[in-house]
Simulated assay, not measured.
Amino acid sequence: MPGSLTGVTPTTGTPAALLAAALRTDAARPLITFYDDATGERVELSVASFANWVAKTANLLQGDLGARPGDRLALLLPAHWQSAVWLLAAFSTGVVVAPGGDPAGADLVVTGPDTLEAARACRGERVALALRPLGGRFPRPPAGFSDYAVEVPGQGDRFAPYAPVGPDAPALELPGGAVLGAGEVVDRALASARVLGLARGSRVLSGLPYGTWDGLAAGLLAPLAVDASVVLCRHLDALPAEQLARRQDSERVTHTAGG
């Protein structure tokens, strides 16, 4: 199975287990369709394609970067398909991910091109993403950072953590410092899905940033929890209303959040 995450966790109450279940149920269905309305980029990832990226990234995180369960990862990335990959990779390894977190207090940092200087405050491993179309690398790698696009292709397509990641493991640090366990992330994702009205087969368009729970839920976690999918849009405010309406129609959007 492409991007196999079997063995990630024996429990069902974790984000990684949700992804493993989605692979078993319908690996070919779309999970994330990403638009960047500043560049015109569109990327569509099936469950299988997304899981393959997650497995490779989790292997990079656990292996080459030496991350261990309980380590803190400051994620300085916008709402982007690669940000979603890093979230699930961190959940899969037991690393606590802090979207928008302070890199000075983190064990490692993952950053986009606009936050490189802030990310230098991290004294641990530093990974940079160019956020170019098709996951392209930096034309010139930033000094002091590993280029994700260079490092991830050679990673293995199957992932298993060194230690099981259960529902009680710390997983997500929210703005303000509250830390949710993996099981709490799943419970809140299901609750957010109910609030949004999502069900199996729903397709939610989200223009919300990943720096808040609402953005994380609408842009990844709630759809994943209920076998739905997301149309994740960056720079959505650059899109004229008539083009947004056409997108909603062409992508068969059933729900919107921040759009």
Rank of each mutant, 00 (worst) to 15 (best):
A218V: 07
R42N: 12
T93K: 00
L131R: 00
P175D: 09
T212S: 11
V96N: 05
G100A: 07
P2E: 02
S229P: 13
V179K: 07
A169M: 08
V109S: 01
G70P: 08
I32T: 10
R234I: 09
R24K: 14
D249P: 06
L134T: 14
S206D: 03
Q62W: 02
V96Y: 04
P10Q: 05
G101R: 12
D187V: 12
T256G: 14
G136N: 10
L108W: 09
G215W: 00
Y148S: 14
L31D: 01
V85W: 00
E41G: 11
G154W: 06
L18Y: 01
C233A: 13
A48I: 08
A104N: 04
R252G: 12
F138C: 10
E41R: 13
V95W: 01
V95F: 04
A118G: 07
D114S: 03
R247V: 10
V253T: 11
V95H: 01
L88E: 01
H80D: 13
P78L: 02
V95K: 05
E125P: 13
V226C: 04
G101E: 00
C233P: 02
R29F: 11
F145T: 12
L134D: 10
G258N: 13
G258R: 08
G219K: 02
V54W: 01
A58K: 00
L108G: 11
G63W: 02
A104G: 07
L205I: 14
